[in-house]
Design a protein around this nucleic acid. Structure first.
Lengths: 158, 158
DNA sequence: AATAATTGTTAGCCTAGGCTAAACTAATTG
DNA sequence: CAATTAGTTTAGCCTAGGCTAACAATTATT
């Protein structure tokens, strides 16, 4: 075999896109995302439970399962975790309730979610799309950006 | 024990926030997010490898590990997966390369990432924050929203 | 050339978050 | 009130994505 190997090339001079950030900053970006992922699901559950309590008066495991389209077993397991984390109280075969701390988290999540959703709509995104995007984005928007989104929304549809 | 149990309450009449979406739509929101999570990491790796190749001329496992701040073992395992998925070619102790398909994915990811990043900056978000938020948001922004972001950016700083 | 340092791989462990199947409890209805 | 249906839980399995520790290969240094 002669040297037809793939060889590293010199960096492309006409760089499209930005330069690479310094290693520490770059690393921090990924770390932040990983951290968000850890709390994301927890927050989604708590937020949904809060919504169900508010709109329906009760939050049953079966509702959560169908709204999240996961199995009831998955929900049951998750509820145990939320319990251990002190976010919900539950008794077998009864509606769930949020603890003080859980309510706090639900409100915060709900508020973030609404800000992002309203912002997207104000930007001109269709409702269905906005809802989907907001669900994914809400956990990755910093307080700084959130504040800017809120201001934008207020200014663009009073 | 007398009946001091926590009881479900009637739905709050003064609803803050929106009403609950119909179950199917609600479920689809969460499904979309779950699907995004599955491809997210893969795309991040491929995108980073593309960036390293472009800016540095080569992409070594050690660089990926430090830029993502994960262990080299984790990177090594992931590279095997990327290989199996036909996204990269690798030989031990040599730089990684992207396959045709990998390059395609890297470009798409990079483009999305840039649009989100530039949009955030155009909105007025500070650079460091914008980078962090963009890293988390990019995988959750629909094509529709992406197009709107791009238009916004063009109009707000040419 | 020998040794040291860097880089990469492998093995084995852990947690989170899915799933199905089976068992149990509560509610509804014949 | 017995039986069916609906809701919940438990057990056990799987994959992804982290980790550390030990080892192997390459590259750099003396």
């Amino acid at each position: 075999m002669s040297d037809h190997e793939q060889q590293p090339l010199p960096p492309t001079p006409h760089q499209s896109g930005d330069a690479l950030p310094p290693v520490e900053q770059h690393a921090q970006q990924y770390e932040t995302v990983r951290n968000a992922h850890e709390t994301e699901l927890i927050e989604d559950y708590v937020e949904l439970i809060g919504d169900l309590l508010r709109h329906r008066g009760e939050a049953r495991a079966a509702d959560i399962a169908s709204r999240m389209s996961v199995s009831q077993a998955t929900v049951s397991k998750m509820i145990r975790r939320l319990n251990e984390l002190g976010l919900v109280t539950s008794r077998p075969y009864r509606s769930l309730f949020l603890t003080q701390e859980g309510q706090q988290m639900a409100e915060t999540s709900r508020a973030r979610h609404d800000i992002v959703l309203h912002f997207l709509r104000a930007l001109g995104v269709r409702d269905t799309t906005a809802r989907i995007d907001a669900e994914g984005m809400e956990h990755h928007v910093s307080d700084e950006t959130l504040a800017i989104m809120q201001r934008f929304t207020e200014e663009h549809q009073p």
